[in-house]
Computed example of a mutant assay.
Amino acid sequence: IRLASIHQQTKFLSGGNQQKVVIAKWLLTNPKLLVMDEATQGIDVKAKSEIYSIVRELAENGFSVIFISSEVPEVRRVSDRILVIADGEVVGEFKRGARQDEIMKKALSGKQEHLDNQVVS
């Protein structure tokens, strides 16, 4: 985390550094599970890459991380297992290395299947 001084307030840090502060605070609680929902939204590419590295390192060290993102390339980069969920139901499951087009196909067809099954009143 880059600071102008040790007295710099978090609210004046870049978005990426603010996210890293949040992750550090979570880790101080010795969690067994981290749920990260759109953790890289609105931050620059370098900060995203650093957060991906943090997530991978945590997973490699035994932490359970649920990484929620609407960006498939991001999910593929950090995940060992990918679940595609539509309307609260798992409609697809993939292992690390799955192709993006396969994941997107399931995500789009899962949403369509759920829309087709809805009753219009």
Rank of each mutant, 00 (worst) to 15 (best):
L34V: 07
F12I: 03
I23T: 12
T29Q: 02
I43W: 01
Q9L: 09
K11R: 09
V35N: 01
N17A: 13
S64D: 15
A47H: 11
M36P: 00
Q9T: 02
V35C: 01
L58D: 10
Q41R: 05
L28P: 06
E38V: 11
Y52I: 11
E50C: 12
L33R: 01
A59E: 10
S14K: 05
G16T: 10
I51P: 02
I43K: 02
N17L: 14
V45H: 00
S14H: 02
D44E: 03
G42Q: 11
K11E: 15
W26H: 07
S64R: 13
L3P: 06
A39D: 04
V22C: 10
A4L: 01
L28R: 08
I6Q: 10
G62P: 13
L58N: 02
K11W: 10
Q18K: 05
I23W: 01
D44V: 07
A47G: 05
G42F: 10
Q8G: 11
M36R: 01
G15C: 12
I23R: 09
E57K: 02
Q19Y: 08
V21N: 03
R2V: 14
S53E: 15
G62L: 14
F63E: 01
D37E: 13
K48V: 13
L34D: 07
K20R: 07
N17P: 07
S53V: 09
R56H: 04
T10N: 10
I43Y: 06
K48H: 08
L27G: 00
G16V: 04
I43V: 15
Q19G: 08
T29P: 00
M36Q: 01
S14T: 12
Q41C: 02
Q19V: 12
S5R: 10
K32I: 09
D37R: 09
G16H: 05
K32E: 15
K32G: 14
D37G: 09
K11S: 10
A47K: 09
E38Y: 10
S14Y: 06
P31G: 01
V55Q: 00
I1T: 14
T10Y: 03
E50P: 05
Q41Y: 08
Q18L: 08
G15A: 05
S14P: 06
S64V: 14
F12Y: 04
S53T: 14
S5A: 12
Y52F: 13
S64C: 15
Q41G: 03
E50D: 15
Q9R: 08
A24C: 14
L28G: 09
